[in-house]
Write a protein that binds this DNA or RNA. Structure first.
Length: 993
RNA sequence: GCUCGGAUGGUGGAACUGGUAGACACGCAGGACUUAAAAUCCUGUGCCCUCAACAGGCGUGCGGGUUCGAUUCCCGCUCCGAGUACCA
C-alpha cells in the first residue's frame, strides 16, 4: 500500500494511549532523564504553528534518550490561571473555569494530533484545587520563614523567635524591612502577641507591607516589575501608574546573591543569564553618610530623627570631587531640608516632575533640570559644605534615592554642574579634558584629594572604605537593583492567599484547611467599594468571623514549582514524595521561550532555593540546561492593488469632479502580479502600456460610458500600489488562488482584474503571526493534509531551533516526499511490503552508519534541522542502492523514529517487531566508514583546481610526488616550480608557486 | 547609549576543530508518462563572460589584517533583530 499517513497515525496514537507507552516509572534502575517544556497558558486562540516547535524538539530528544536507555520523564500540563480567561469572564459572565476547561480540550486535541510522547498520567493544571493546595502550602512555608544571613539560608521563623527571646534584635542578621525595631530580650517578653506578629512580619519571606506598586487601572490590579514594559502592562498594553498600597510581597531580594552566583553553574543561553544578571543588578561600592548642616535650617528639621543623608556610590574614590548632593524629588527629607527662600522653586519643581509621566521621564534624558533646597551637607572627608539639590535624574527607587555629584567623573553630574554652574573638581591626574566632558577613568594618581593623594584606584578604595567605617560615616556596600516581588493581584482567577485577618494583622489558616478554595462570585469585577472581586463572595470568612485576604496570587505562583509536581502528580499528602524528588532530582533539559527570562525563570529559581533551604528538595538549581526556541514569525501574503485616478476626456465642470470619484468606486479594482511590480516602478513605458491596455481592453466599456480615461497614480513616496493582506490559506507557493480571492473579504474583489505574466503571484511580508494579518497557520490543518510525521520533521527542517524565523509552508512538500520515499524503501513496485534477509552490502552499511553517527551527534547538540537533511541523504543513497536489506532498514527505522514516530512504528511492526519505543539505538561502527582512497582537492595558491584520488596510506612525501607527477597538475603549474607544498592527510593538497 | 544575537543563491538553510562554499529542500527551467491536467519520475540550476562546450573571472554585508589556505580567527565599519536604560 502507498503511504497512508492518516490511518497509520491514528492507529499508533491510539496504541500509545491505550498501552500507556510513555508512562514514566519512578522506581527504575535505569538512569533518569527529565525533559520539560514550558507548559502553556491555554488561550482561546488555540495553538498556532509556532507553539509546537519547542515541544517537537523536546519530544525528539525524549524519544531519543529512551532509545539510548534512559528512564525519561516527559510531562505536560497547563498554566491555567490567568488574566485572559478572567477578562473574557467579565465580558460574557462565563465562569473562567469553564472557558479554561474548553480551551484545554482544544489544546489537548491539537497536541494529540502531533503524536507527542507525553506522560499524560502526570498532567497538572495550576487552577485545580489539588494543585493549588500545594502552591498555597508553599506560600505558608514562605510566611513561616526568615532569611538568616549568618547561615545564608532561609530558616523557620521559630529560630528567629528563639533569638529574640535569647538576645533581642541585636544579634539577628537577617534580610528584612528597614523599619525594624531594636529591642532587648526583656522588651520582647513584654510585647503583646500583636506587637510580636507585627514585628515578625518585617522578617517573613512573604510579607504584607505598604509599598509603591505598579497599578494598572484598566486591569484593576497591581503588576510585578517584569509584567510592566515601558510603562504599559505586558498583557493588554494598558497604562500603568505608581500607587501606594498595602501589598503582599516575596522577599526575593534575600536570594539576590545566590541567584546571581547560581548562574555560573547552569548551562543556559548567555543572553538569558545576562538578562538575569542585569535584573539582579549587583553593584559593589560604598554607602556614605553626609552630615546635614543644621545651622540655617528651620525647626521642621528637628522632627526628623536623622541628621545625615546617606548615598550609595560605586566610586567612593571620587569623594573629594563631590560638589553637590542630589536627592530624588520624592526623597523623604526634601521638605525638611528646603529653606524658606527656596520653598517656591522646590515646590514648583516637584509639581513639574509629578506632571511628567514615568515614560516622559525616561524618554527625556537630555534636558537637565533640578532645584536647590537651600541646605548643605558636610563632606566627611574634608568637612566642606556641599549644597543639596533635587533632580529627577535621581530615582527614588534605587539605592537610597540620593547621590553624590562628582562632575569630573560622571557625565550626568557633569551636565548638571555645567547647567547650574557648580564647581568641577579634577581628582585624578589621569582625567582628560574635563572642561569638555566628564572622564570616568580609574587610571592615574589622585590629586586634590587630601589623604588619598598619590594613591592608585585600588588602594584609594580600600583605604577610604576602612576610613569611613572607622569614622562611623560609611562602609563598603553591595547594592542590588532587584526589588522584592509584589505577590498580590486584585483579581479573581488565581490562587486565594491562605491568610485571614484578625485585628488588622495577617494569620495563616491551618495546614489541614488547605486548599482554601476559590469562592463563587456573582460577577468578576471589583466591589462597589473598590475591593478585589473576592470581596463579592458571600459567606466567605474564616471561622465565620475573620475576613480572608481578598487578593489572589500572581500568574507566576503556580509555575514556580510545577516541575516538582510532575514527579509525583497524584500525591495528596505532599507536593511530591521525598523518594520521587530524590530520584528525579532536577530538570535535565528545559525548552521554552526567552520571554520568560526574568519572570518565570527567576521566580522558579528563587522558590527552588527556598525549598532546598527548608530541606524539601535537593538541588540548588532547578533547570540544568535551558534552550530557548526561536519565535516563529508570520509570513503574510500581500496582493498589490494598483492605484489609479480617472481623468475626463472632455472639459468638465468643477462639480463633476466628484462624480468621477464616485464612478471610480464602482470600477473593478486592478491587481498586479508581484513579478511585474518592479518593472512598473522603474519603467515609464511599461506603465504607459499598462495604462493603454486598461483603457482600451479591460475597462473600455466602463470608461467610455463616462468619457474618461484611467491614469496610474503615484503618491509622494512613489508607491504605485496599495498592499492588501491576503489569507495565506488561499495562497500556495506565493501563487494566489484567484477564484478564492474573489470571495475573500465578503466578495469585495469579485469583479477585480488580475494582471500577470503567468500565474498570479503575491509578495510577502514578515511580521507577527496574527489574525489581523491573515497569516496564522494552524498545525491541525497541516497534520490533516500531510500527517503529523511530516509536520514534525518540517518544523525541524525550517532551521536551527534557537533561531527566530518566519513560517513558510512552501517547503513542506519536500518533507512529505521524503517520508513517502522512505516508505517505498520497504515496498516493491506494486507497493507490497518487501524486505530481504540478505547480507548487507558495504555501501549500504556505510550509508546506515553515517546516519547513525550523524543523528547521534546532531541530537546531542540540539541541531535537529541538520539531521532531517541527513535522513534525506541516507534515504536517497539507499534508494539508489536499491537496498532491501532487513538488517539495514530495521536500524534505520529506529534512528528515524524520534523524528517520525508513527511511520516508524508501522514499519517496525511490518518488520515483525514489537515495542519500538523501547528498542535500543544502534551502535555506531566507524569501521564501515573507513575508506582506502580520498579524492584530494588539489589547489594552486589556495584556489581549488581539481580533484585527485590518492590512497590514504600514502605519507606526505609519497603523496606530493604522485601529485607533482600528474599530467593535469603539470598543466596547471605551466612549468613553474612549486615553492612549497602543503599536504594535510585526508583533507587537502595546496601547491604554492 | 549599553548588552547580546545575526547578515551565505530567487527562498529556507548546510559547511561541527582554519582545509573542495552553496549539502539537503523549496522554487524555477527543460524533458518523460498522459488526449490533457494533476500526481510521479529524470536532467539542469550562485553570478558574470561565452551560441554552446572547454576554459576563465567574481563570489559568504562592507573595508583591512593574520595564514600556504578565512563563511570560520583578529581590527574597524554598515545594516537588521532582541533585551535594557538617567542604576549613582
Amino acid at each position: 500500500m502507498d503511504y497512508q499517513f492518516a490511518a497509520i497515525e491514528q492507529k499508533w496514537q491510539k496504541f500509545w494511549a491505550e498501552n500507556q507507552t510513555f508512562k514514566a516509572d519512578s522506581n527504575s534502575t535505569k538512569p533518569k532523564y527529565y525533559v520539560l517544556d514550558m507548559f502553556p497558558y491555554p488561550s482561546g486562540a488555540g495553538l498556532h504553528v509556532g507553539h509546537p516547535l519547542g515541544y517537537i524538539a523536546s519530544d525528539i530528544f525524549s524519544r531519543y534518550k529512551r532509545l539510548k536507555g534512559f528512564n525519561v520523564l516527559h510531562p505536560m500540563g497547563y498554566d491555567s490561571f490567568g488574566l485572559p480567561a478572567e477578562q473574557y469572564a467579565i465580558q460574557t459572565g462565563q465562569h473562567p473555569a469553564i472557558t479554561t476547561e474548553a480551551n484545554i480540550a482544544t489544546y489537548r486535541r491539537q497536541l494529540d494530533q502531533i503524536g507527542f510522547s507525553f506522560d499524560w498520567s502526570r498532567e497538572v493544571r495550576t487552577s485545580e484545587p489539588g494543585y493549588y493546595k500545594w502552591t498555597q502550602w508553599i506560600f505558608m512555608q514562605l510566611f513561616n520563614s526568615w532569611y538568616n544571613l549568618e547561615t545564608d539560608k532561609a530558616e523557620d521563623i521559630t529560630t528567629l523567635i528563639e533569638k529574640f527571646n535569647a538576645s533581642g534584635s541585636a544579634d539577628v542578621k537577617a534580610v528584612c524591612d528597614e523599619d525594624i525595631l531594636s529591642f532587648m530580650p526583656s522588651d520582647w517578653a513584654t510585647f503583646t502577641a500583636e506587637q510580636k506578629q507585627e514585628e515578625l512580619l518585617k522578617y517573613r519571606l512573604t510579607y504584607l507591607k505598604e509599598s509603591t506598586v505598579n497599578w494598572c487601572p484598566a486591569l484593576g490590579t497591581v503588576l510585578a516589575n517584569d509584567e510592566v514594559k515601558d510603562g504599559f502592562s505586558e498583557r493588554g498594553g494598558y497604562p500603568v501608574e505608581q500607587k501606594k498600597m498595602m501589598q503582599w510581597s516575596m522577599r526575593i531580594s534575600a536570594y539576590a546573591e545566590r541567584l546571581l552566583q547560581g548562574l555560573n553553574t547552569i548551562d543556559w543561553p548567555e543572553p538569558v543569564k545576562e538578562m538575569q544578571r542585569n535584573w539582579i543588578g549587583k553593584s559593589v561600592g560604598a554607602s556614605v553618610r553626609f552630615k546635614i548642616n543644621t545651622s540655617n535650617l528651620n525647626t521642621q528639621y528637628t522632627i526628623l530623627n536623622t541628621d545625615f543623608i546617606e548615598v550609595f556610590t560605586t566610586r567612593v574614590d571620587t569623594i573629594f570631587g563631590v560638589s553637590f548632593i542630589v536627592l530624588a524629588p520624592e526623597h523623604e527629607l526634601v521638605q525638611a531640608l528646603t529653606t524658606e527662600a527656596q520653598k517656591e522653586s522646590i515646590t514648583n519643581y516637584i509639581a513639574q516632575t509629578k506632571k511628567k509621566s514615568e515614560l516622559d521621564r525616561m524618554a527625556d534624558t537630555k534636558t537637565v533640570s533640578g532645584a536647590f533646597t537651600g541646605s548643605y551637607v558636610i563632606n566627611p572627608v574634608n568637612n566642606e559644605l556641599v549644597p543639596i539639590w533635587i533632580a529627577d535624574y535621581v530615582l527614588a527607587g534605587y539605592g537610597t534615592g540620593a547621590v553624590m555629584g562628582v562632575p569630573s567623573g560622571d557625565q550626568r553630574d557633569w551636565l548638571f554642574a555645567k547647567h547650574f554652574d557648580l564647581p568641577i573638581i579634577q581628582i585624578l591626574d589621569g582625567q582628560k579634558a574635563i572642561e569638555v566632558e566628564a572622564d570616568p577613568t580609574k587610571e592615574g594618581k589622585y590629586i586634590n584629594s587630601d589623604f588619598i593623594n598619590n594613591l592608585g584606584y585600588k588602594e584609594a578604595v580600600s583605604y577610604l572604605n576602612h576610613w569611613l567605617e572607622r569614622e562611623g560615616v560609611g562602609k563598603a556596600k553591595v547594592n542590588y537593583r532587584m526589588r522584592d516581588a509584589i505577590f498580590g493581584r486584585q483579581r479573581y482567577w488565581g490562587e486565594p492567599i491562605p491568610v485571614y485577618f484578625k485585628d488588622g494583622l495577617p494569620y495563616l489558616i491551618k495546614e489541614e484547611e488547605l486548599p482554601l478554595m476559590l469562592p463563587e462570585i456573582d460577577k468578576y469585577l471589583p466591589t462597589e467599594s473598590g475591593e478585589p472581586p473576592l470581596g463579592r463572595a458571600t459567606d466567605w470568612s474564616y471561622e465565620k468571623q475573620y475576613e480572608y485576604e481578598l487578593s489572589t496570587m500572581p500568574g507566576w505562583a503556580g509555575s514556580s514549582w510545577y516541575w516538582y509536581r510532575y514527579m509525583d502528580a497524584q500525591n495528596d499528602c505532599e507536593f511530591a514524595s521525598k523518594d520521587a524528588i530524590a530520584y528525579w532530582k532536577d530538570v535535565d533539559l528545559y525548552i521554552g521561550g526567552s520571554e520568560h527570562a526574568t519572570g518565570h525563570l527567576l521566580y522558579s529559581r528563587f522558590w527552588n532555593k527556598f525549598l532546598k533551604d527548608l530541606g524539601y528538595v535537593n538541588e540548588e538549581e532547578p533547570f540544568k540546561k535551558l534552550i530557548n526556541q526561536g519565535m516563529i514569525q508570520g509570513r503574510s501574503s500581500i496582493t498589490y492593488r494598483l492605484k489609479f485616478d480617472l481623468v475626463s476626456n472632455i472639459q468638465i465642470e468643477e462639480n463633476e469632479i466628484e462624480a468621477l470619484e464616485v464612478k471610480k468606486q464602482t470600477l473593478p479594482q486592478v491587481f498586479i502580479s508581484s513579478e511585474m511590480i518592479k518593472g512598473l516602478q522603474e519603467d515609464v513605458q511599461k506603465r504607459l502600456d499598462l495604462e493603454n491596455n486598461l483603457n482600451n481592453i479591460y475597462l473600455t466599456e466602463d470608461l467610455n460610458s463616462v468619457s474618461c480615461r484611467l491614469k496610474i497614480s503615484t503618491d509622494i513616496y512613489y508607491n504605485l500600489f496599495t498592499p492588501i493582506h491576503t489569507d495565506v490559506n488561499i495562497v500556495n507557493n506565493d501563487i494566489l488562488n484567484v477564484e478564492d480571492f474573489k470571495t475573500f473579504l465578503n466578495g469585495e474583489f469579485e469583479k477585480s482584474i488580475f494582471i500577470s505574466e503567468g500565474p498570479f503571484r503575491c509578495g510577502f511580508e514578515i511580521e507577527k503571526m496574527s489574525k489581523r494579518y491573515y497569516n496564522v497557520v494552524n498545525p491541525e490543518v497541516l497534520a490533516q493534509q500531510y500527517g503529523a510525521d511530516t509536520l514534525r520533521m518540517y518544523e525541524m527542517f525550517l532551521g536551527p531551533l534557537e533561531q527566530s524565523k518566519p513560517w513558510n509552508t512552501n517547503g513542506i512538500e519536500g518533507v512529505f516526499k521524503f517520508l513517502r520515499k522512505f516508505w517505498r524503501l520497504f515496498h516493491n513496485e506494486e507497493w507490497v511490503f518487501h524486505v530481504e534477509d540478505s547480507i548487507p552490502a558495504k555501501a549500504e552499511l556505510k550509508a546506515l552508519h553515517k546516519i547513525i553517527k550523524k543523528v547521534q551527534d546532531d541530537v546531542e547538540r540540539f541541531s535537529f534541522n541538520t539531521s532531517v537533511s541527513s535522513f534525506m541523504i541516507a534515504v536517497n543513497e539507499l534508494t539508489d542502492l536499491k537496498c532491501k536489506n532487513r538488517q539495514v532498514l530495521e536500524d534505520l527505522v529506529i534512528v528515524l523514529s524520534p523524528y517520525a514516530p508513527h511511520i516508524c512504528e508501522e514499519l517496525w511492526s511490518l518488520l515483525g517487531n514489537k515495542d519500538l519505543s523501547n528498542a535500543a539505538y544502534p551502535t555506531f561502527n566507524p569501521a564501515y566508514l573507513e575508506e582506502a582512497e580520498f579524492a584530494y582537492p588539489i589547489s594552486i595558491n589556495g584556489k581549488m583546481k581539481m580533484n585527485l584520488s590518492l590512497s590514504l596510506s600514502l605519507d606526505e612525501t609519497q603523496a606530493t610526488e604522485t601529485v607533482l607527477a600528474n599530467e593535469q597538475v603539470k598543466g596547471y603549474l605551466e612549468g613553474k616550480a612549486p615553492k612549497k607544498i602543503i599536504f594535510v592527510k585526508g583533507k587537502i593538497v595546496n601547491i604554492v608557486v
